[in-house]
Simulated scan of single mutants.
Amino acid sequence: MAMTVLQTRVDSETKLAAENLFSSLGLDITTAIRLFLKQAINQQKIPFEIVPPKKQFSAEVLAAIDEAKKISRNPNVKSYSSAKALFEDCE
């Protein structure tokens, strides 16, 4: 398979922190990025949950987020495939 170059720019602090993390896992940054890309393709999505840094939220908001996660994972909670179905059920 032909190889190509992928370049990206990040601030020095982010690069150093990523290099330190990946090095502790036995990876270099190029391999870590390649793993991310392969997993995104395999799963057809971002292969992890994207959340803002928790320091931006109050304790009340963090508790609400945790509650929402628990509810969304509970198989006994009724779910809807669309907003229309939800609104119809509310009538």
Rank of each mutant, 00 (worst) to 15 (best):
T4K: 10
V5A: 04
Q44E: 15
Q44H: 15
E67C: 01
P53D: 12
E60R: 05
L25Y: 13
A17T: 14
Q43A: 15
F48C: 10
V10A: 12
D28C: 15
L21G: 01
Q39P: 00
L6D: 12
F22L: 03
T8E: 13
A18M: 09
D11F: 01
R34P: 00
K45I: 03
A59T: 11
K15G: 06
F48N: 03
L16S: 12
I41K: 08
E60M: 03
I29Y: 12
E60I: 03
I71W: 02
K38F: 09
A68H: 14
L62S: 10
A68S: 13
D66L: 12
N42W: 06
K15L: 14
A2W: 04
G26N: 07
T4Y: 13
G26R: 05
T30G: 11
A32I: 00
F57W: 14
Q7E: 12
D66S: 13
K54A: 14
S23A: 15
I46V: 10
R34A: 08
A17N: 12
R34D: 07
Q39A: 11
A63N: 09
K69H: 07
L62H: 13
K69E: 08
S23C: 15
I71E: 05
E49I: 03
D11S: 09
I33G: 01
K55P: 02
F57S: 01
P52F: 12
F57Q: 00
R9A: 14
P47Q: 14
L21K: 05
F57T: 00
A18G: 01
T31C: 01
N42P: 01
S72N: 11
K54N: 13
T14H: 07
I33E: 03
S24D: 12
E19H: 10
A40S: 15
I46P: 00
Q39C: 08
N42I: 04
K38C: 03
P47F: 08
I29M: 09
Q43F: 15
P53W: 06
I65G: 01
L16R: 09
Q56V: 02
S24C: 08
E67Q: 03
I33F: 09
D11I: 04
T14N: 07
E13L: 02
L6K: 13
K54Q: 14
M3W: 10
M3N: 10
R34H: 04
V61K: 10
T31I: 03
I41V: 14
L6N: 05
L21P: 02
P47K: 13
G26S: 07
Q56W: 15
V61E: 11
R34V: 00
I29T: 07
I29V: 09
Q39L: 11
K70H: 12
Q56T: 04
L21E: 05
L21F: 08
A32M: 02
A2P: 11
A59E: 15
I33N: 05
L35G: 11
P53V: 04
I50A: 01
S58N: 03
Q7V: 09
V51S: 10
K54D: 14
A18N: 02
L21M: 04
K15I: 08
E13H: 01
Q43V: 13
T30A: 13
I33H: 04
P52T: 07
T30I: 09
Q7A: 09
E19R: 14
D11P: 03
E49L: 04
K55F: 13
S72V: 03
V5F: 04
A68Y: 01
K69V: 05
K54L: 12
S24M: 05
A68G: 10
